[in-house]
Design a protein around this nucleic acid. Structure first.
Lengths: 255, 255
DNA sequence: CGTCTTTTTGACCATTTTCAATCAGTGTGG
DNA sequence: CCACACTGATTGAAAATGGTCAAAAAGACG
């Protein structure tokens, strides 16, 4: 459950070249100029692969690395003394992981993989070089931080003001929209590979109450629960139910 | 209630020179080098003063400005279709306001003043110049964004996993610590000038339940409610109750 | 076939909301 | 000075929402 992944950068397991980065093909992401691409390639130290359920980063640690998600997905969470876990947000391809520890001193949350993840590894000590030599990329890092802030704001609105049904609806179509945007491959039927425990830990509800809420959404044919996780049947109706506007469609940067 | 403030930059109402910025005297803030100070001085367009209850920025708007809080305090919030309001976080001296609209396209939340506020006004179109010419300051902007993210994470943990009593305790000592750190002047007895409605809108509770929760904290001599707002009597006991570690003490940047 | 994880259900209890007043303090106009 | 309106704090009672406990069902897997 808590085994860390492995950084591959040997001659045999050569990390992918940024020129052929699969994210560059996805329309939602903005293009690099050649020079930037070149810099990021040199900035990249290797790749980290993490198995489902394994920890990418731990609260309280002081990682020397900064990551970008290349494949797979995971979640950020915090735990309270009594052991209860709160999921803060999910991370998907193109998202930065570990910016807090890179900019400030230490991680205040943990990150765990939901599906097999591949992350590009950067050395956090070189982040300042990036700021010095590539203001455009530095701006992009800030852009990503501002976007994360926006998502957290929306999550707080949800936790504070939406009913159980609305909250679940919001979460599911939010995740669905995000995974569509970043071209994330999912389970067989396009299911979000979550357990109801994950949903409960995100929404701030007990597992039992979460189950009853999801069951109602399933009875109303808005979602379906399969072995692979949650299948979204009616994204528009869910968005409507939750009073949610959807993600913006401005092309987003990534590093 | 929704009247905007006024930007003062005439010869009579000359905006303060950054050299004499009162924030520079506060130990929690990091020092500028001369050249940075010089740049920020030129970057600054003027000052905005806002009366309590007035709106600084509105959700959905596309402000041409980016601000730093110089004096006073306010809060960021979002509203749902049904009119319910969720306070996302509070802004105090040294905090950036409007970064989202400066970096992305439009504000996804509103900002309102709690006490008379003064904000330094910057032109958001020049933010990229800052990134180009002053990587150190650019890094500081990212630092501030990461710090906001950290605060939001903690707030989400609170909303999702803390009991009413813990949540209230957390909020009050969080605000108390922040105002001490940034040297914010408060009401007569050092009261946080909040109404219970503000607390309710932050914690995600109804006003009635918030009142009952706060009343119990008052009965236990942990806080006191006065005409000026909330006086914190036992910050340590509150932090203990909420299982909260306090703010870090690394010197923080500001622009 | 047993073991494990995850979903599902029912019964009962605790928390929180809503509704409906009341109370206390402030400020205003007469 | 007092009546009046207004804002914010306080209270009680009923109703709704969500949590806890305990157990069963349903798949997944070796």
């Amino acid at each position: 459950m808590t085994t860390n992944g492995e950084i591959t950068n040997g001659p045999g397991l050569r990390a992918r070249d940024c020129t052929h980065c699969p994210l560059r093909k996805i329309p939602a992401f903005r293009e690099f100029c050649d020079e930037e691409l070149d810099f990021v390639s040199r900035f990249k130290r290797g790749e980290l692969t993490v198995a489902p359920g394994a920890t990418v980063l731990t609260e309280g640690s002081n990682s020397p690395h900064l990551y970008t998600v290349l494949e797979g997905w995971g979640f950020r969470y915090k735990t309270l003394e009594d052991g209860s876990r709160q999921i803060l947000n999910y991370v998907m391809p193109g998202d930065l992981v570990g910016l807090q520890s890179a900019v400030m001193n230490e991680m205040q949350h943990s990150v765990e993989a939901l599906k097999p993840m591949t992350l590009c590894v950067f050395d956090r000590r070189e982040l300042f070089d990036l700021y010095r030599s590539h203001p455009g990329l530095a701006f992009d890092v800030t852009w990503l931080a501002a976007r994360e802030e926006q998502m957290l704001d929306e999550n707080i609105l949800s936790l504070g003001r939406r009913s159980a049904r609305q909250r679940a609806a919001y979460l599911l179509c939010f995740l669905n929209d995000r995974r569509l945007q970043c071209g994330l491959s999912l389970g067989r039927d396009g299911a979000l590979p979550l357990t109801q425990q994950h949903v409960a830990d995100t929404l701030g509800f007990s597992l039992v109450h979460t189950n009853k809420t999801l069951k109602k959404l399933a009875t109303d044919q808005l979602v379906k629960w399969t072995e692979d996780g949650c299948v979204i049947l009616e994204p528009e109706k869910l968005a409507d139910l939750a009073d949610w506007q959807g993600l913006g469609d401005t092309p987003r940067p990534f590093i």
